[in-house]
Amino acid sequence: MPNCSNCGVYMQPTEVYKREIYVGTTNRVNYGKRVSFGNSTHYRKQSVCVNCVNMIDKANEARKRNSTIVLLIIAIAIIIYFSFRR
């Protein structure tokens, strides 16, 4: 039986779902003519259980909602700025 990549619970083969999960970060330094630094974040589709699927989906919805609210606030601020600029 497969186990959940997020919480480790054993799952039935019919209850396996795939979601993008954070798996790590890579930090690198390049020594050439100039020293440069780079960071990258890695995500991978992994098998997760029903409870983790619900948790991941709720977190993604909250992230989308927060992004939409921030973009609307910025748009309203720009509109107000240009309307009172005259």
Rank of each mutant, 00 (worst) to 15 (best):
N3I: 12
V48C: 01
R65C: 05
V9F: 01
K33T: 08
T68Y: 07
N30M: 04
N6W: 01
K58D: 09
N30T: 09
N30W: 05
I21D: 09
R65M: 03
K45T: 13
Q46R: 12
N54P: 11
Y81R: 00
N3W: 08
I79A: 14
K18L: 07
K64E: 11
E61P: 01
G24T: 06
A77D: 02
K64C: 07
V70H: 14
K64P: 04
C49T: 09
I74K: 10
D57A: 09
N27Y: 11
N27L: 11
I80S: 10
G24P: 07
Y10F: 14
Q12Y: 06
R63V: 02
T14Y: 06
Q46G: 07
R85H: 13
E15F: 02
T14P: 01
S83E: 01
N30P: 00
V70Q: 13
V16E: 04
H42G: 00
G32H: 07
K58E: 09
R44N: 13
C52Q: 02
Q12W: 10
Y31G: 09
G32Y: 03
S5Y: 13
V29E: 01
Y31Q: 13
R28H: 06
T41G: 04
K45F: 10
T68Q: 15
E20V: 05
H42C: 00
C7L: 13
E15C: 06
I21C: 10
V48F: 00
G38F: 07
R28T: 08
